[in-house]
Amino acid sequence: MPDRLDDVFHASHRLPPDAASRLSADDLSRLRALATEPGRQRVPAMNALVVAGDPGVVDLLAVTLRDSGADPAVRAAWAMQLAATGRPDAEDALVRALPEAGPAVVRARIAAALARIGSPFVLDDLARLAGDPDPAVGRVGAFARHVVAYRHGMPGFEVPRPDDQDLLEVDDDHAPPMAVGRAGPEESAATLVSLRNDTFGLALSEDTGLRIDCGVRRMVFLYSQDFLRRGAGGPLRLPMMPGLIAQRGPDGSYATRLVLLAGPQDGESFHLALYRTDGYQMMAGAATIDGEGAVFELRGVGGVRNKLPALLRGRIQGGEFVLTSAAEARAVPEASHPTPDSL
């Protein structure tokens, strides 16, 4: 007879939501025991508890996250699982773990988790993380600070604006086609369900979105309800997050890949920045307000790991983005190379 927890431990990709919903009180009790013991089953066990919304899961995660003797990779994973719970007490658990965070991977993942769920109360903590001597922690900490401030409409935390020479050129004539169209309510709603709590704290609209097909990749831009309500037909007085881009994975599920930030620039325009979820600024640009809305242009930003030679031009009208031109270079230039090794 198959074990009731087979679905949890046999899933190679994301745990189907119905598998989590079938778990009984006894199953959850067994999973709690497995998730707190050092062993190979703790990661899928904890994942199942988070997906199932187990009421005690935040406490379980917090204990190990604060345990300086625990495996750093597990602690880092637990920080992200805390964000995935979507629970209000997760932020407090993350902040309390900071003084004992230790390894850089744990500090970076606490910052990344706070980017997803942080309130304005964590901005001081994120400022300290942004100044961390480890470059990765500093990058993610700065990104988290931007995200929290923009999400909450707080001025004074503007994203860095790249110089013109740092913006990448794209050969429009030789770029592979990028198809952009409106995503209907069904597709937007399905994407939203698939994201679970991976929404960077945004209340996203399930009524409309943008579908982006680029080569083998399918992405959906989901608007924040705040953006749709406020629109962008006039001067943007406060920073905001208009939405995010979710990418479809090989199993058909969606994960957040990029987040869009927008903030005031001057009376006639506002700045736009598209960030990868690990804090690399991928594209930057501006929108200029005209009589019918705004016209915008976004270009890829050069950097060590994040070169995306891409160009997006379009309009914001009626509270939505309409792309008039989209191009992306064929290849990713200059990836880093691992070091030869032996086992």
Partner: peptide, 20 residues
């Protein structure tokens, strides 16, 4: 066999999603 160090891998020493 190849290797990426902890400091080079940074936060990607663990993976949280297909996007990562």
């Amino acid at each position: 066999f190849w290797r990426i160090s902890v400091s080079e891998a940074a936060e990607h020493a663990i993976i949280d999603s297909a996007a990562e």
